[in-house]
């Protein structure tokens, strides 16, 4: 299991109800079903990925996350609403975060950290928009329209009244190393947060 998935799996109580936003081919949902006996749904915009979820036996709703969760789900209908590596592609990340803690008891979010030292180096020394393994797109064709740093994200949580219950940092090998806890904004390539509403 990928380390970010393992972190998420550790946070999730057995037998809980889970919603995965931008679930892709439902790999994470299948892992959680096997390791934590979860139930729930995925949301996915791509019909090709949806067909993969169907093959794997995971219920999935084809929907555009930019239209929010309220068309589909009632308040507090899930234990966890998860969104991995998708926040930065959303038109209104701040609204979606609010919807996540509205529809779920807790929200779990992962995103690429723009403050990662390699990104900073490319920008500061090269004077170019960073292109890395985690962020492989050119500035003109990237789906990632709302990139942020660990500090930006925590400032948003503060402003939005979102409580940070837990956070973990991982590098490009998706390993979690002790040093990252000291300087997460510089050393983490991917950040993993567990949040709750007010």
């Amino acid at each position: 299991m990928r380390v970010d998935h393992a972190i998420i799996s550790d946070w999730i109580a057995p037998n809980s109800r889970v919603l995965d936003l931008g679930c892709g081919d439902c790999t994470l949902l299948r892992e959680l079903r096997n390791s934590r006996n979860t139930t729930g749904y995925g949301l996915e915009i791509s019909i090709d990925k949806l067909a993969k979820c169907v093959e794997g036996g995971t219920p999935v709703i084809q929907a555009n996350l930019d239209q929010g969760l309220s068309p589909w789900f009632e308040a507090q209908s899930f234990d966890y609403v998860i969104m991995t590596h998708t926040l930065q592609a959303m038109r209104h990340p701040e609204k979606l975060l609010q919807e996540m803690v509205h529809v779920g008891r807790e929200a779990i979010v992962t995103f690429p950290n723009m403050g990662y030292w390699k990104n900073r180096l490319q920008f500061a020394l090269g004077g170019r928009m960073p292109v890395t393994k985690t962020l492989p797109y050119g500035w003109f064709d990237t789906p990632n329209i709302h990139l942020c740093t660990v500090r930006d994200f925590e400032a948003l949580c503060e402003a939005q009244g979102l409580r940070i219950l837990d956070r973990e940092m991982v590098d490009s090998q998706l390993q979690s190393r002790p040093l990252m806890r000291l300087a997460p904004n510089l050393l983490a390539e991917t950040a993993v947060y567990r949040l709750a509403g007010k």
Partner: peptide, 9 residues
């Protein structure tokens, strides 16, 4: 979904 049923759309 409200009824908590297994559904794919």
């Amino acid at each position: 979904l409200q009824a908590g049923k297994r559904v794919t759309y």
